[in-house]
Design a protein around this nucleic acid. Structure first.
Lengths: 244, 244
DNA sequence: GGGTGGCGTTAAGAACGCGTCAAGATCAGC
DNA sequence: GCTGATCTTGACGCGTTCTTAACGCCACCC
């Protein structure tokens, strides 16, 4: 079920949205101002955010930037018909769409569908294979040594982020923000604990990880192909370079 | 450069779009009807399509479906203010956005930026290659002589700044300020120590650097292409000291 | 020729980050 | 209300990384 977070402080609009979204089987939650809206995004991880620009406590573009700092969740902005510059500012701050009030509910719903559709593209490679284990992103299933491995929700989230960025280094801040929420960005402890869990469940030799690698001081990296063992040790530079 | 395909048959709008897009350094091409529009998408692979619904030969949603059958290229629909059902149909057919005429050019450009931004999260060219090593800025990964090289966070920061200013001279003050903070601008020692680290890990001959060059009294410079040996003051012919 | 300033190199202690373990808190299912 | 699983939190040891100082070398200037 698609979860929608509505950040708005006008009861009539709120009511209309709630009714129409619930009728289409969306899961709706509500926040009445920017601060609680940002907190709600972090806590609930909605699939899409509908944001009214006329909030009592902070500027709408600030809310957008606050979300975009750590998340790519689609944001549809709602606003009274105003200056074009406001639209431009919101879109450039990272909003995905902009609807002016009064709006047709059918149009908003269509734009909502479009935003959600874009956000979850058909994953071209939903199964990632390593010599030691395979990860099926679509089925949310991990197999190691021929048998299914049970992962807790947190473990899965962590693994999924690393696997989706296969080969690339993912910073600790990003991992913490995406798994626990942006306010946990300094809790490096969590990462260490859960990386240890994942390695114990997936790595052939958890003490010497081959696929879930630590880059000290920077973050973690998932590598599908095991690197040659020698690459981890001292790199003796071969004098093989005959230029020209 | 971002390539935009405009599918429209009204000369005034076409003219306005062409002028404004070209002024923003977009590469613009044009098709006057649905059939040639579909052909143009297939041939040119534009980064984004602006599609007018009022085409002479076929229904706009047909064009959208024709593109969506095989491509996820962002489509922004342009249309005269009409029924809401038309908007819904276009969006559900796969359009990314819908702008009604008359529209503000700034708004359209902002929506265009939003669509392009969503489609290409990694816009730049993140891999820098030299004969001796390669630097992947997005993955934060360095490879020398075929093997991964482990860099410490400070080493990586330094290298990243130099590589991002490839070919240009970067002053010591700037390097110190960006890596250690503005209050360290006089600690030239740090730079010497870490440049030595980088050279030992990356340069084929750390004592005679080819890619991480010192400009005495000014700063450092990264060069992707090795300068000719003569420029370094090498007296011997290049062939003789290969196997040392 | 001697002096000077900038650079490369090395080495040592200090500081930090990471893996690990374990215990308490919280949650979900029965 | 109980039980097991999961999450949070703190502490400790170890290896790595950072900081800092000292020394030698070279180019340049007087």
């Amino acid at each position: 079920m698609t979860r929608v977070l509505v950040i708005d402080d006008e009861p009539p609009i709120l009511r209309a949205l709630r009714i129409n979204l619930a009728a289409r089987h969306y899961e709706v939650s509500v926040a009445a101002d920017g601060a609680s809206g940002l907190a709600a995004v972090a806590r609930q991880r909605p699939d899409v955010v509908i944001l009214d620009l006329g909030l009592p406590d902070m500027d709408g573009t600030e809310v957008i930037r606050g979300v975009r700092g750590w998340s790519a969740t689609p944001i549809i902005v709602l606003s009274a018909a105003g200056q074009e510059s406001q639209k431009v500012a919101a879109l450039d701050a990272g909003a995905d769409d902009y609807v002016t009030k009064p709006f047709g509910m059918d149009e908003l719903l269509a734009r909502l569908r479009a935003a959600v559709r874009r956000a979850s593209p058909a994953p071209d490679e939903p199964v990632v294979v390593t010599p030691a284990f395979t990860v099926d992103l679509a089925a949310k299933r991990v197999t190691a040594a021929g048998r299914d491995v049970r992962l807790t929700p947190t473990e899965w989230q962590l693994l999924e982020i690393l696997v989706r960025h296969s080969g690339r280094l993912v910073s600790q801040r990003q991992l913490l923000a995406e798994v626990w929420g942006p306010q946990y960005e300094t809790e490096g402890n969590y990462l260490r604990v859960y990386m240890a869990h994942l390695r114990r469940k997936l790595e052939p030799d958890p003490a010497r990880p081959r696929y879930l690698l630590t880059e000290p001081g920077m973050g973690y990296r998932f590598t599908a192909a095991a690197p040659p063992a020698a690459a981890l040790g001292a790199q003796s530079l071969p004098g093989e370079d005959c230029s020209s």
